[in-house]
Design a protein around this nucleic acid. Structure first.
Lengths: 387, 387
DNA sequence: TCGACTTTGTATATTGGTTAAACAAAGTTT
DNA sequence: AAACTTTGTTTAACCAATATACAAAGTCGA
C-alpha cells in the first residue's frame, strides 16, 4: 500500500517505538530511560506514555532505585490488556493456545484431525477458537486477534496458496476466519511462526540472524535477518523442504526429485528401506531410548541428512544461531550428534566460528505462540521506517 | 539505525515518494497527476516539486495535452543532474561504466585482472574510476557515487565478508574506496546488482517477484520480492551457488559437497569428465555455433543442472519471472532447451502457470548498471515506511 | 539539618511540515 | 461568449515534535 508521510504517521511511528521499547523491557524502564533509548524527546515520551496509559497498554508500576536524583517511575507493559489465540494447524492435529499480549499461555487445546478437507478443518478450528474465547479472562480489550500457522505457502492476504500436506490450494483462510469471528486474523507459514516464537520468547531471544528449521511431517524454515522475519511476500521464503539434495533422488509430490524433506523428515518413515519398528516420532523416540538399534539408526540417518540441508542454509544465510524445532526436535538426543558431525565436516571454518546449533526451547508450543504473537503485533501496530 | 519520527522524516518520505514517482514516469506526469498517484495533497506536491526543481533533479518540460481544462505542465526527471560509476568485479576482469542518474551508459571501461590480491585489485579499481571520473561530462552534482558488484557475500557496511573466487575475506572495500575518492560507495553482491539492473532497466521492468540467476564462474541469485531487493543483511540471501544438489557429490571449496555451481557454472570446465574442446564460455559458444557436438553436449548438461537448481528456487520463491544472466547467458541458445525441459518436468503445475524464464536483456552490462543504480538510489534517497 | 546538586517528569512557546479550501490561471465545450 | 474543467498556487489552520524552562523528588556532603 502507498504510504504518505504526515503527522499521524509520525505519531504512529513514535508510539510504536515507545510501546515496543517498554514491552521488551517491561517494568525496568522510566520515561527518561525510554527517551534515551529511543532518541525521542522527554516531552514526546511523556505524551505518548500518557496516551498508552489511557489505553491501558502501559501502567506505572512504582518507583525504582534512584541514582542520585528523583526516583524513576517504572513503566510496565500491561500484557493482560487483552488476549490472542494462537493456532498451529498440523496434518493430524489442531493445536491452539490462548495467550496474553506477552506470549504467556493461559489456556491450551488439542484437537485430532481425521480429514483435511476445508469444511471439516474449518469447523474444527471454529470449535476450538470458540472454546478458547469463552475461557478467556475479562480484559479491557478482550480477544484482539487470532494467529494461525499453517504448513504451506501463504501470501500477504492470508491466502493459503499451497499446502501439499493438506491438499489445499488457494484457501482464503484469513477471510473465512475473520468473517466467522469478526476479529483480525493473521496467517503465517508454520516455520515463520515458529521462528517468531523462538525469537521473542524462546531459545533465540534478541538474536539478529536466526535460522529456524521446523522438521516434522515436512521441513520448513523461518529466517530472521537483522532481527526481523525475512518473509518476503509472506511464507514464500523458507520453503526449503523442497531443496533438492539428490539430483536424481526419489520423486517428490512437489514435482521435483530428491527433496530434502524426503530424507530428513517424518516422510522417511513411509519410504525407509529397512522395516522400522514404528512409524511415528513419539514411538520411535520411546524405542530409541530403550536401546532399539533400528530406531537409533533411523534417527542417525535423518540427522545426517538434516545436517546436509542445514549446511546449505548456513552457506547461504550465515546465521548466528540455528534452532531446530517441530515434532522431530523430540528426537534431539539421537539427531544432534550425526547432524553436528555433518555440519562440522561440510561448512567453511569461516562460518563455524560464530555458529551455534540448538533445539527449540518452546517445544511443541513454539509455533502456536509465534502465531499468536503475530496477532499481538498486528493489534499493537508496528510502524517503522527504512531509509 | 534507530529512526524516530519527526517532520524532517515526513518530508524525506514524501520527497522520496514524489521524486521516484517522477523518475519512473519521466516526462509524462503533471503535478496534479503526481498528487493523484501518491495520495499527497496538490499543495504538498507543488512545494516538493519546487524544491526538486531548485535542486535541478526535476525540470518542467513543457505543456501536455489538455483533457478539457488547463494544460498540464509535464515534469521531467533530470537524469543528467549527475553521474555515477558502476563497477563489476569479476574473477579475471574489471568492468566499469559511467552512467547518468537514469542508468544510461555514457562511458565504458574494461580492465584485465592478472591477480586477485587486494592491493593489486584496488589499484586497478582506482585507475579505472579515476579515468571514468575524468571523462565525466560537466553536471550540477558531478559524480555522486560509486557502486560495486562483487562475487561474494557483503554485509550492510560494505565489507566483503567472503569472496571465495577472489580469495577475499573481510575486506573493507567501501571504506577503502570512500577514503580514496571522498564519494559515497555502495557495495553489493554481484547477483543482487544484476537483479536490480534487470528490474529497473532490463528484462524485468516493474516485475514484482523476480528471481535473477547469475551464472558465470559461480552461481548467485538476486531475489526481488514485492518489487524490492530481498537482501536481508545484504548479500547473505541468494548465495545459492552452494545449494547442495547431490548429497554425496563432488567436494566443493565451500566445505560442502555436490554444490550447484559445481555442475552448472564455468567450474564444470575444469572437472568435466570428457575432454572439452575449450575451457571458457566465449570459445565454447563459438564452437557450439559451428556445430561442435562436445561443446553442445557440455551446455546441455549444464542446462539440465541449471534447471534442477532453478526448480528448487521456483519451489521456494514462486517468482513471476526468472532472468538468467552472467557470462553463461551468452550460451542461451544451447542452455535454454535442456533447462526448460527439466523445469517443466519437475515443478508443480501450480507454479508453471504464471512463470516465465528469460535471459538477461542488459547482457554483460547488467551488473555494472545495477551496481551504479544502487549508487543513484543512495544519492537520491529512498525513505519509506512499513506499517 | 540544611543547602547544593541530580535526576525525573511536566508545561510552554516555537517550529515546520501537511492539509483543506478558496482562488487564480488556462484550457475546452456548447 | 458563457459555462464548465482542469491545473496549479495561496492562505490559514492544524498538529506533533522539540528546546527550554521549570517543578518535583530524590541524594549527598558538611
Amino acid at each position: 500500500m502507498k504510504v504518505t508521510g504526515d503527522q499521524a504517521l509520525v505519531k504512529k511511528i513514535n508510539r510504536s517505538l515507545v510501546l515496543h521499547t517498554i514491552r521488551k523491557h517491561s517494568s525496568t524502564l522510566s520515561r527518561a530511560r525510554v527517551s534515551e533509548l529511543t532518541g525521542l524527546n522527554k516531552a514526546t515520551v511523556s505524551n505518548l506514555v500518557a496516551e498508552l496509559c489511557e489505553q491501558q497498554l502501559v501502567t506505572e508500576v512504582g518507583p525504582g532505585k534512584s541514582s542520585g536524583g528523583r526516583k524513576p517511575l517504572l513503566l510496565h507493559f500491561n500484557a493482560m490488556a487483552g488476549t490472542v489465540i494462537g493456532i498451529e494447524l498440523r496434518v493430524k492435529q489442531l493445536k491452539a493456545v490462548l495467550c496474553d499480549l506477552g506470549g504467556n499461555v493461559l489456556e491450551e487445546r488439542d484437537h485430532a484431525l481425521e480429514r483435511h478437507d476445508l469444511s471439516y478443518v474449518l469447523e474444527a478450528m471454529k470449535k476450538v477458537i470458540s472454546s478458547l474465547m469463552e475461557s478467556a479472562p475479562d480484559t479491557p480489550y478482550g480477544t484482539v486477534g487470532i494467529g494461525v500457522g499453517v504448513p504451506g505457502m501463504v501470501d500477504e492476504n492470508g491466502v493459503v496458496l499451497f499446502a501439499p500436506n493438506l491438499g489445499w490450494e488457494m484457501v482464503h483462510l484469513r477471510q473465512l476466519l475473520e468473517e466467522a469471528f469478526s476479529v483480525p486474523v493473521t496467517i503465517d507459514n508454520e516455520a515463520n511462526a515458529g521462528a517468531q516464537g523462538e525469537l521473542n520468547f524462546g531459545a533465540a531471544k534478541d538474536v539478529r540472524h536466526l535460522l529456524y528449521i521446523s522438521a516434522g511431517s515436512g521441513i520448513g524454515s523461518g529466517i530472521i535477518i537483522g532481527g526481523e522475519l525475512y518473509k518476503g511476500a509472506r511464507g514464500y521464503a523458507g520453503e526449503t523442504g523442497h531443496m533438492c539434495i539428490e539430483a536424481d533422488g526419489r520423486p517428490c509430490t512437489c514435482g521435483s526429485r530428491g527433496c530434502w524433506e524426503l530424507y530428513a523428515s517424518e516422510k522417511t518413515y513411509d519410504t525407509a528401506d529397512v522395516t522400522l519398528p514404528a512409524h511415528n516420532t513419539p514411538e520411535l523416540v520411546r524405542l530409541a531410548s530403550t536401546g532399539n538399534e533400528a530406531a537409533r539408526e533411523q534417527f542417525a540417518q535423518m540427522g545426517k541428512y538434516l545436517g546436509i540441508g542445514v549446511t546449505n542454509l548456513i552457506n547461504s544465510f550465515n546465521p548466528e544461531l540455528i534452532v531446530i524445532g517441530g515434532a522431530l526436535s523430540e528426537a534431539r538426543e539421537w539427531l544432534a550428534g550425526p547432524m553436528q558431525a555433518v555440519v562440522a565436516e561440510r561448512t567453511l571454518p569461516y562460518h563455524k566460528q560464530q555458529l551455534e546449533i540448538t533445539f527449540s526451547r518452546l517445544g511443541s508450543r513454539g509455533t502456536m505462540i509465534g502465531a499468536g504473537f503475530a496477532a499481538v503485533m498486528h493489534f499493537l501496530g508496528h510502524a517503522r521506517v527504512t531509509l
